[in-house]
């Protein structure tokens, strides 16, 4: 079955991973800017990273037969220094015009501090100033519920926000209802230890239905699996769900989500 991985950090994965993903049916990936495992030393490091996501990674994916799209942003783990964050945000407009960029992401909160919120407000303003879609990272572990509620509060405060153009990512059982009931897209990340397993994700599909639900690997430099979406497909099939429902979750939903960007140009090349 053809599938999208709407959230994966290709810059942290090998070319062999991309070849395997393509063999399993991956046709499109979305790569948000994120924390590369260390705090960057200057704005130029971000500039080079944004170039990597808009110049080099699309070529590497194309060589495997996968279309690559990117999101530009500053992860909350590097948002505490508000002055530095402001300099990074100033870099965004030029990159948002690049042909493979879908919007601003992944942005959000990490430890839910005042400075993180200040930086987040700047990022949201930069996104809305040019009518960009937004992809939100929600915090890890014990901070997720509180941080998700705070992100939703910030979004609710801004009348410019169109929920249909916002995805609240890394949802779990205690946050997915909050995102969906507010009209946002909800992303579920398949991770081996934290976030959600394929089984729990199938549970959430059974409880909430497929509307505005996205499933991703968020595979990066940590414990994660670039073939997590195919694992989810197999789990859904084992449970007896029809391919029409599975295809909606791993192909039609992300297609509808990405298509809201004028930069998205993917045209299905073959029937599945």
């Amino acid at each position: 079955m053809d599938f999208f991985d709407p959230h994966i950090h290709v810059a942290s994965r090998t070319t062999d991973d991309l070849a395997l993903m393509a063999k399993m049916g991956c046709v499109v990936v979305g790569e948000p800017a994120f924390w590369m495992g260390y705090d960057r030393g200057g704005v130029n490091s971000f500039h080079d990273y944004f170039r990597q996501l808009t110049e080099w990674e699309p070529k590497r994916c194309a060589a495997a037969g996968i279309e690559h799209y990117a999101w530009m942003g500053l992860n909350a783990k590097e948002a505490e220094n508000v002055g530095f964050a402001r300099e990074v945000i100033a870099e965004l407009p030029a990159f948002l015009e690049r042909p493979n960029v879908l919007g601003v992401g992944e942005i959000g909160l990490h430890k839910c501090t005042r400075n993180e919120v200040t930086t987040l407000l700047g990022l949201i303003d930069a996104a809305l100033a040019s009518s960009q879609m937004m992809l939100f990272h929600t915090p890890h572990l014990e901070d997720k519920y509180k941080g998700t509620r705070m992100i939703l509060d910030v979004l609710a405060d801004d009348r410019r926000v169109d929920p249909a153009r916002v995805c609240i990512d890394h949802c779990e059982e205690h946050t997915i209802r909050l995102a969906l009931e507010s009209g946002y897209w909800a992303g579920v990340t398949l991770y081996p230890t934290t976030k959600a397993t394929p089984e729990r994700t199938a549970d959430m599909v059974e409880m909430y239905g497929p509307e505005r639900l996205l499933v991703n690997s968020s595979a990066d430099w940590g414990p994660s699996n670039p073939l997590a979406v195919p694992e989810f497909i197999a789990t859904m099939r084992r449970r007896g769900h029809p391919d029409s429902l599975i295809r909606r979750l791993v192909y039609e939903n992300p297609l509808a989500w990405f298509r809201q960007s004028e930069h998205f140009r993917f045209a299905p090349a073959r029937a599945t």
Partner: peptide, 26 residues
């Protein structure tokens, strides 16, 4: 029912709707 949600809640920090006034400045 909804034990998974309840277990996650047991491992979560509380949310305060008044966080805007109470979150300390860095």
């Amino acid at each position: 029912p909804n034990r998974a949600e309840a277990v996650l809640a047991a491992f979560s920090l509380p949310y305060d709707p008044e966080w805007r006034a109470k979150t300390p400045r860095g």
